[in-house]
Write a protein that binds this DNA or RNA. Structure first.
Length: 288
DNA sequence: CACTTGACCTGTCCGC
DNA sequence: TGCGGACAGGTCAAGT
């Protein structure tokens, strides 16, 4: 589900809502969602206080005052929603909320705080996970070791972008954009949107892209991600922020889930094809 | 090695 | 209405 802008939106909300809260209790009903040793949980999670919350790629890291951290990956359908005691419905407009009272049948992990507020980890498809890891070892788990650079950091310049792509010259540009070891945080929505923005067809091989096209794509990735971030991310099906609210970016999307509609640039019809095993939305006229 | 496919899961939608 | 199949924002392992 969530890509970089959605995960960052959740992180910002959690930072505001959870900082300095003390964890009093943790429940889970699906072991793969919370694969942790109960002795370590009792020693380093229960009664721990939340220091800060950071993000790397599509993962969230909640740092505790016990020198342990909760590392969270939401995969396709994960949600992290905070509720203060007694508040049964999400913030924002009730009609905009995807969530009713919590916990519900998709709740996999419930974290209770000493002030009787809760953080619910909901995950319909059960692909996501929350792992308790010593803070100084977090970045050494395989997921982070493989991860490429952050596209919204200042050092992600055109030179670095080209260097990262260079290793994969015979692969389609869409597959490479989705590869987290090349660049961290891009998923299916922003791959499609960035390729439309830069007028590049997703099946083009990396080695065949001109420096002008690479330059356009580099700028497009940053533009699209920042636009989404400033709109609270994209809600297609499951995504909600830390208070249960949907994101607004899809109102600005030019191709994603717009098949059958006219291209905002040339008026031809957007189509959906399959590239790198993923549903892929393009304007076949202006993406060449 | 690079690339593709299947697996992990539940739910929804579409065609018959 | 029921049933089968395809598909969904992600990653990882195994296969070619």
């Amino acid at each position: 589900m969530p890509e970089l802008p959605e995960v960052e939106t959740i992180r910002i909300g959690l930072e505001r809502l959870l900082k300095n809260k003390k964890i009093s209790k943790v429940d889970f009903n699906w072991p793969k969602s919370f694969p942790n040793d109960s002795k370590l949980v009792n020693k380093f999670l229960i009664n721990a206080t939340i220091k800060r919350i950071i993000r790397r790629g599509k993962a969230i890291i909640i740092e505790l005052n016990t020198d342990y951290s909760l590392v969270i990956h939401l995969k396709m359908t994960g949600q992290l929603v905070y509720r203060s005691n007694g508040v049964k419905f999400g913030g924002g407009h009730p009609t905009d909320s995807l969530l009713g009272s919590l916990p519900d049948k998709s709740t996999r992990v419930t974290i209770e705080f000493s002030d009787s507020s809760f953080l619910f980890f909901n995950d319909q498809r059960k692909f996501g996970w929350i792992k308790l890891i010593p803070t100084d070892q977090v970045l050494n788990i395989p997921f982070f070791l493989r991860l490429g650079p952050e596209p919204l950091e200042p050092d992600f310049n055109e030179k670095l972008f080209t260097e990262r792509l260079g290793r994969r010259s015979k692969t389609s540009i869409k597959a490479v954009l989705l590869d987290q070891s090349v660049i961290a945080g891009i998923g299916n929505i922003y791959a499609d949107e960035s390729l439309w923005e830069s007028k590049i067809h997703p099946t083009r091989l990396v080695g065949g892209l001109s420096s002008t096209e690479l330059s356009r794509l580099h700028k497009a990735i940053i533009k699209v991600m920042n636009l989404s971030l400033s709109n609270g991310g994209s809600t297609d099906r499951n995504y909600v922020d830390a208070e249960g609210n949907r994101g607004n970016y899809l109102k600005f999307a030019n191709v994603f889930r717009r098949e059958g509609s006219p291209c905002n640039r040339c008026g031809n019809t957007i189509i959906k094809i399959r590239v790198a095993g993923r549903g892929t939305h393009i304007c076949p006229f202006c993406q060449i």
